[in-house]
Design a protein around this nucleic acid. Structure first.
Lengths: 251, 251
DNA sequence: TTCTGATATTGGTTATGCCAATTTTGGACA
DNA sequence: TGTCCAAAATTGGCATAACCAATATCAGAA
């Protein structure tokens, strides 16, 4: 029942973030449905045994993500008509993660080859150097048997920066935030890093030659390899989590 | 310039949002440089003549956007090494808006044709109906001479929803948030709405026939028309600073 | 010089009070 | 009986003050 255990990630630095999680939980569990009015702040403070200030911090955070909406003199409501924002919180549900994984792979397959093209045109000497540094770092982790997706995320983020398109950077940033919440283990196998290094190397070569076509092709190949690995790895561990079935609410 | 006058937008409902704007302003003006430590919360409260609570709300909001970073027992710092987040605040600077406009057009040209393809495959009856409603609404505004980009944004947002890819929805949402801050007048000419309606109509037809190729083509044409209009309108307004993009990759 | 520990500073949290917007209530009035 | 309006209750927004915990700073000891 204790839904903590951040599993090797940030250890809930702020108290209000715990409240954020609890409220999210109550939304996905159906306790608070879309359009519902939450208990008053003073009441929530009693319920969660924290100060009203803390509750307000949590509400503000959720309000800026368009998950909650406050109406002065009235109350706090769960935002309706915005499933996109809620998807972020639904990420807690297991079956949602798998669908989300599909969406992410699909999205990246649409985006990144073109990002690679752009980067081949616009990347600077310094940008290329930063990519190489990241790649070396990843290579080192492979040899050490460390399994985190951080280097991989860094690489693609840096590539977005190299594209010279600010929107692209922002997009990859939000995608990473979603990923950080769902963080499937299948993304963190050591094998994954090895595959990544190969793909990243080809991409860097293409960028160094300033060859958009080669960059696009290399990225497509890389993504295909990653998808292939993830899907196969997913099948292997599918049995392990099969019995875990959260309550699929209506909505 | 008076930075208030929300002119048909949200009227600064919260005090802390004003503080957010002021702090942003002080960052873009260089008063607080990247990596700098801000004055202590108690000090800021004195400076801005508001409560410390209010300052903390503003800081929290900026921290969640990765613009500020708080270190307990130390201070609050302007995030370095994340120009993407800062781009959102730099949006205040005029020349930045233009470059951002280029980025947005480029980004949409990369994304939306493929979104249209996806939507042609996945759109539901209800989704199609919602698109039609939005289009009618836009048509009505054209006839009434109302000039807001809202219907246009709604259409593309709904299309992202129709694609069935959650990431896409989230992405368009964040893009809209950036747009809402920069909101160039060139985006709100009545003419713009008229052009949009034509393009949207073709897209809907393609979706109704479930023809991915036609949808992609229609979207490309639509975006080209919009870009054309915006760029020409921009030239008319003032001489365009052509391709003098800042060195965005300097970091 | 280097280490250590007391002290000051800073963000984090709690508690309380009041204000302003909104809803609800209940009585006055037709 | 039904309608309207003003007082009361409820709710979120903001201010203030006090204390906690983490960090930095610096004086004094080794």
């Amino acid at each position: 029942m204790s839904m903590d255990a951040p599993s090797a990630f940030q250890a809930k630095k702020h108290l209000y973030q715990e409240i954020v999680e609890k409220i999210k939980q109550m939304i996905v569990s159906g306790e608070f449905a879309m359009g519902d009015r939450l208990p008053a702040e003073r009441r929530l403070a009693q319920i969660f045994r924290v100060s009203r200030n803390c509750i307000r911090q949590a509400i503000q955070a959720l309000a800026e993500k368009h998950i909650l909406e406050t109406r002065r003199g009235d109350g706090t409501y769960v935002c309706a008509a915005d499933e996109s924002a809620l998807a972020e919180s639904f990420v807690l549900a297991v079956q949602f993660q798998k669908e989300l994984l599909h969406d992410i792979l699909e999205f990246r397959l649409m985006m990144e080859p073109q990002v690679a093209r752009l980067a081949a045109r616009n990347i600077t000497r310094e940008g290329l150097d930063r990519l190489k540094i990241i790649l070396c770092d990843q290579q080192r982790k492979v040899l050490a048997g460390i399994a985190d997706g951080e280097s991989d995320a860094d690489f693609h983020m840096e590539l977005a920066r190299a594209s010279g398109n600010r929107i692209m950077l922002k997009v990859f940033q939000t995608m990473n935030e979603i990923l950080n919440e769902s963080r499937s283990e299948t993304l963190q196998a050591p094998e994954r890093n090895r595959i990544s290094v190969e793909g990243h190397l080809k991409i860097i070569n293409a960028l160094e030659n300033r060859d958009p076509d080669a960059a696009e092709t290399a990225m497509k190949g890389h993504l295909a390899a990653v998808e292939n690995f993830i899907l196969s790895a997913d099948k292997k561990c599918q049995l392990r989590v099969k019995n875990v079935r959260l309550n699929k609410n209506s909505l």
